[in-house]
């Protein structure tokens, strides 16, 4: 694992290495070097299996983190590449040519986070949501609670009391 990470540092200038456990390491890589690095890992380094592609919304920093996790079935190690992209007009190079399943991930990311992958087959088709008009729901600024309160009817007659507030109102209302 150490050698491959060293090589990634040299070849693709990865940073923020975290060896989470024996067989799992996280690295950060530049947006434009990400797909070449994954391609290299897949074709040259034995990381032939894709585990997942997903995104993390760092709303405060204005960034999306894309995580590509790939797996080497031979030496049983796993590398996760973090790619930080701008949240505004989020776009990333498509990797659908590498694995057949990538287009599914990218389609989901487009729908759930609004990250575009130009050229990825069917990326604009709705994957799970049909007729969705709000902002992409997996973004941090989409408030599920608020949405459900606005969309559905709460059960009438439900009312709760905070113990401390209730005790104050009954025991010492004027203090």
């Amino acid at each position: 694992m150490v050698e491959i990470l060293k090589e990634l540092e040299e070849r693709f200038q990865v940073s923020d290495l975290v060896q989470q456990k024996d067989h799992l390491a996280f690295v950060s890589v530049d947006k434009n070097k990400a797909i070449p690095m994954i391609t290299w890992l897949k074709d040259q380094a034995g990381y032939t299996s894709l585990t997942l592609i997903t995104a993390v919304d760092w709303l405060e920093d204005g960034k999306f983190q894309l995580t590509y996790m790939i797996n080497n079935p031979k030496n049983k190690t796993q590398i996760a590449a973090r790619v930080m992209i701008d949240r505004e007009n989020a776009t990333m190079e498509s990797a659908h040519h590498l694995w057949e399943s990538v287009r599914i991930y990218q389609r989901e990311l487009k729908e759930m986070f609004g990250i575009d992958f130009p050229g990825s087959p069917g990326v604009d088709e709705s994957f799970i949501l049909e007729g969705w008009v709000d902002i992409p729901p997996y973004r941090r600024d989409f408030d599920t609670k608020k949405y459900s309160e606005e969309t559905y009817f709460p059960r009438p007659g439900r009312q709760s009391n905070d113990p401390a507030e209730y005790m104050k109102s009954k025991m010492y209302p004027n203090e």
Partner: peptide, 26 residues
């Protein structure tokens, strides 16, 4: 896949089951 940010809730949870690829692309 879980990402935490120091708060009392996860930042992101992503579940990867085999059906995700097997029932779609495959």
């Amino acid at each position: 896949y879980m990402v935490t940010d120091g708060s009392d809730m996860p930042r992101r949870v992503n579940l990867k089951g085999p059906s995700y690829t097997q029932a779609t692309a495959l």
